[in-house]
């Protein structure tokens, strides 16, 4: 069976979608990703959709689900490389992909993930200091 590969890169998981997904493949990716986040304790997920020419409401829902599911597992999801025509179509369709972070390309996506995680870790360190003073 076809499968979308999920690569591990340090604290992040990296997914590059190279084909137009049919529904089963997209659903499998959703569940595989969530399991991988749990298994690896990844803090971020980066999904490269630069080769995806169509995002319809189904695919949009899958991306939204992935973002929300990984969020409750303490990982941030960033979608990168969306084609301009896809962005225009998504908004006209009425699907703003709420809760999904996005970045222009893989490099900027990685930066975004790093900064988000640094921010979170920073906050928790501050908490520790606060508690120790108490």
């Amino acid at each position: 069976m076809e499968k979308i590969p999920i690569l591990r890169m340090g604290r992040f998981l990296l997914v590059t979608i190279q084909v137009d997904l049919y529904d089963r493949l997209a659903e499998n990716l959703e569940s595989d990703l969530v399991h991988m986040v749990r298994k690896t304790g990844a803090r971020g997920v980066l999904i490269d959709i630069s080769a995806v020419s169509i995002i319809d409401s189904f695919m949009g829902r899958i991306l939204g689900n992935i973002a929300m599911m990984t969020k409750v597992l303490d990982a941030e999801t960033v979608v990168v490389g969306m084609q301009p025509a896809v962005a225009i179509t998504l908004i006209e369709l009425g699907l703003p992909l709420k809760g999904v972070h996005s970045a222009l390309n893989v490099e900027r996506g990685m930066e975004l993930l790093r900064s988000k995680i640094a921010l979170q870790d920073g906050e928790s360190q501050d908490d520790d200091i606060y508690h120790s003073i108490e």
Binding site: F58, V86, T89
Partner: peptide, 17 residues
């Protein structure tokens, strides 16, 4: 053009679904 193509194919995808 690519934008209209994408809109058409996305609409088609919704309706087929």
């Amino acid at each position: 053009g690519i934008v209209n193509q994408t809109k058409l194919i996305t609409a088609a995808s919704e309706l087929v679904r």
